[in-house]
Nucleic acid binder design. Structure first.
Lengths: 272, 272
DNA sequence: CTTGACTCTCCCGCTGCGGGAGACCGTAGA
DNA sequence: TCTACGGTCTCCCGCAGCGGGAGAGTCAAG
């Protein structure tokens, strides 16, 4: 019979841990002095303890180990649990690899450019919403504000003319890529609460949801175009694929105080 | 100004989490109504929140993020922290890979042999100890008990003859591999508390410590030889290398009750 | 008999929240 | 104007697997 300290030295498991396992009923002391409360272990309990450690090493929780050790598990069940654990380990492995890739990307990013406007990209899932939208062609880049503004006005007018109600926030969809500066294909989109009749210019449909890579800019409106390259780099670095038109969400926009405007750019992405 | 629920919907971060970040001073609500206690957020706080999420994704703890966000960190410092994080991620990555390998090995083990005596192998570090030891040659396998027994007797006699004191437990070192059955090279080793003179047959030295793969057998002494192949398979499967003679530690050994004997087999190993 | 090393049982703390209780608060419909 | 109902507030507990420490009792050697 060994005192807990001896058993701890023998097994290389801390005393605290042995007591914890005893409390959980994993490795119950072979004998407990009913007067002093001292735990006494037998060397014959070593195999069980090592089995516990081996299972812990494989990634099982103490609760699962308790079931395996106490309710003598069959061979086939153990195989099933191991395969499940393998799947879990694969997921964690992939997570770690992705994290590594993100860190690497960030480090490369820092080394490439000394100035770090460095927008932070988040992955988010967005629900589908009902919208009214007006799609337009913009021949030259300097006409974007005027033409897009007119498209929004047109859409808002249409909504009100049919007794609809617009929701916040409005957004622009870009069907041409960010490096297109002539003949751009854009869409002024306004979320609405319920269905409306369409017109020749203003369409009503459900804007698809899904997974989006998103980044937010706060401050002068003109600068936020840097968001697009930042997002594209992130998508590239994290091996996603662009799965549709990008969105510029005008979370807060006040033409009189442009330094307070907040814009979110979203790219729909798929793994791959 | 947004109520916490609106800000939560906008950012896709749960309300509970936002409150938690507020408590920690990570994302303090832009305004708190001093009467109702309601938190009001501004959309301009979105970039900070996304920066937080990005840093969390990279593996930083909230405490570290607090330092990065609040005490505006320099470019160079961030680079250092990222490289540190990369090192940490590499370690975790390797751990996961090792765990995967262990699970795979275990699964293969199960498929190979239907009977699962299945000893559980643990990695432990062992401290160097002072020993008295008698090394012998054993011509044939069936002479092991007799010759090894005589070597132990010789060693114990030597210790007592010089007024020394033996410690528990004694062990045998095997300088020939486990699949050697003729002309085996073994050593009866007894730990002692302090130095002794040597003799022609009994040597006194410090037995090296290090990392050992260890497994324990409880029960009939004859069966425990299965431990060796089990350990060798484990060492192979986990890509370790044997770094010296194996040890059989007689943790508990009673010739009158062999079913109660407990034996631990240890192989010194190195990574690689 | 005394010391010093062990051992016992609480209880708190860690991380990053989630769940729930009980009490306000705010707004839209009858 | 009253009344729902949903949003928000502040606690407090729980999680997994122990580690640290307090305060009290035990054991073995000198």
């Amino acid at each position: 019979m060994l005192k807990i300290g001896d058993f701890a030295r023998l097994s290389q498991v801390p005393v605290k841990t042995l007591r914890y396992y005893d409390d959980l009923g994993l490795i119950t002391a072979a004998h407990v002095d009913s007067f002093t409360g001292y735990r006494y272990y037998s060397v014959e309990q070593l195999p069980r303890l090592y089995r516990l450690l081996a299972l812990k090493d494989l990634g099982f929780s103490l609760e699962q180990i308790a079931r395996i050790l106490n309710e003598g598990i069959t061979h086939e069940q153990l195989r099933g649990m191991l395969m499940f654990k393998r799947a879990e380990a694969e997921v964690r492995l992939k997570e770690e690899q992705d994290r590594m890739a993100r860190i690497e990307a960030r480090l490369r990013n820092i080394e490439l450019e000394d100035n770090v406007p460095d927008y932070d990209v988040a992955l988010k899932t967005i629900q589908p919403i009902l919208v009214a939208a007006c799609r337009i062609r913009i021949p030259a880049n300097d006409m974007v504000p005027a033409l897009l503004g007119r498209a929004f006005t047109e859409t808002y007018d249409h909504i009100r003319a049919h007794g609809g109600k617009e929701l916040e926030p409005c957004m622009a969809l870009w069907h041409t890529t960010a490096d297109t500066y002539t003949d751009e294909d854009a869409e002024a989109v306004v979320p609405i609460s319920r269905g409306l009749p369409e017109s020749d210019r203003v369409k009503v449909y459900e804007l698809a949801g899904g997974t989006f890579a998103s980044a937010v800019h706060h401050g002068d409106f003109a600068e936020f175009t840097q968001l697009h390259p930042a997002l594209l780099r992130w998508i590239e670095a994290n091996s996603y694929r662009i799965a549709g038109p990008s969105r510029e969400v005008y979370v807060q926009h006040d033409t009189r105080e442009p330094q307070n405007s907040v814009t979110e750019v979203q790219y729909p992405v798929e793994k791959g």
